[in-house]
């Protein structure tokens, strides 16, 4: 009984926090602070001569992130190779 009450209390706390966060969220497409977005949208074509602003962010302004993503894929391939490699008997 005590366990169930604790569980209900936890659910209430989580739901209240979630509801409060949803209540304060900004409208879709209307960010609270937009200077960074405006900078990208206004200057990507001129600075980096690229039409696709998403690609400009992913591969240029935030290129270091993409290096990490490529490294994650490389690590995944390495671990799969280590797991499924055909070893000799008893190894």
């Amino acid at each position: 009984m005590k366990k169930r009450a604790l569980f209900m209390l936890a659910i209430l706390v989580v739901a209240g926090t979630f509801w409060g966060a949803l209540d304060r969220i900004h409208l879709f497409g209307d960010p609270v602070r937009a200077p960074m977005d405006d900078y990208y949208l206004n200057n990507a074509q001129q600075e980096r001569s690229v039409n696709n602003v998403v690609t400009a962010i992913v591969f240029d302004y935030r290129g270091f992130d993409t290096l990490g993503e490529a490294a994650v894929l490389f690590t995944a391939v390495c671990s799969v190779l280590a797991l499924f490699r055909k070893g000799r008997e008893g190894q």
Partner: peptide, 10 residues
């Protein structure tokens, strides 16, 4: 033929 290293990296 634009976008510099972005297309190369792609």
């Amino acid at each position: 033929n634009s976008a510099g290293t972005i297309s190369l990296m792609n």
